[in-house]
């Protein structure tokens, strides 16, 4: 199969993810969209690794996964705390941190 198709799929997934982050108010959905973006990037890395016949892209993909796992731990904790205190998971409601 042509590796370029993987890149196209990665682009589509990234666009979907970024659209979700920008457009959805629910924090959980936005969070899942972020995961989608990360995995789109991972896909692109792996595809590039395959195209160039080098392992670098695959190694970076592992790093991204580890960071994503760590981010999930912290991000979900934050979302849970926001939901507990504000009884809502809307990101627009949590707009108090401004001057």
């Amino acid at each position: 199969m042509n590796p370029t198709s993987y890149l196209v799929l990665a682009t589509i997934l990234f666009t979907l993810g970024s659209g979700g982050v920008l457009l959805r108010r629910n924090a959980l959905v936005a969070f899942m969209s972020v995961e989608l973006m990360l995995n789109a990037a991972n896909l692109a890395f792996v595809a590039f690794a395959r195209m160039h016949g080098a392992l670098d892209g695959q190694i970076v993909a592992f790093f991204v996964m580890i960071i994503a796992a760590a981010e999930v731990v912290i991000g979900l904790a934050i979302i849970v705390m926001i939901f507990r205190t504000r009884r809502s998971a809307s990101v627009d409601d949590a707009s108090l941190l401004k001057l």
Partner: peptide, 17 residues
């Protein structure tokens, strides 16, 4: 410049994008 700090996460995300 502080008016740019709206507090809306999604607008920050847009700026980043």
């Amino acid at each position: 410049w502080r008016r740019w700090q709206t507090g809306f996460v999604r607008s920050y995300a847009l700026t980043m994008l």
